[in-house]
C-alpha cells in the first residue's frame, strides 16, 4: 500500500444504458489507486446488479447502493487486484 491519502471521485453515467455504465466504471477505476473511492450515478436500474457483479469479479468493494428519484448512486472502494 502506498502512503498517499485515498482520493474520492465521481462518475456521471446518467442516461446511459447497461453495459455502458459498467464500461465507464471499469475504465475510470483503471486510473485510480487501491483505497480510492468512486461514486457512480446512473439512471439504468440494471446497474444495481451489474456494477456489484463487476466489482465482485474484479476485486473491488461496493460500499453502498442508494436509490433516489429514479437515480442509482453506487459507491465503490477500489481494491488492490
Amino acid at each position: 500500500m502506498s502512503d498517499r491519502d485515498p482520493t474520492h471521485h465521481h462518475l456521471d453515467a446518467k442516461r446511459l444504458l447497461c453495459p455502458m455504465p459498467v464500461i465507464k466504471t471499469q475504465n475510470k477505476i483503471k486510473t485510480l489507486e487501491p483505497g480510492d473511492t468512486l461514486e457512480v450515478i446512473s439512471t439504468d436500474p440494471g446497474v444495481k446488479q451489474d456494477i456489484p457483479a463487476w466489482c465482485r469479479i474484479n476485486g473491488h468493494s461496493v460500499i453502498s447502493v442508494v436509490e433516489e428519484d429514479n437515480e442509482y448512486i453506487i459507491k465503490i472502494e477500489v481494491g488492490s487486484s
Binding site: C18, P19, Q26, G46, Q49, D50, A53, R56, N58
Partner: peptide
Amino acid sequence: KRNNALWSAEQLGIKLH
C-alpha cells in the same frame, strides 16, 4: 436484468473486461 457475460464470469471465478 443481469448481464449474462458478468454472470458467466462470476460463475467461472474469472476476471472480465
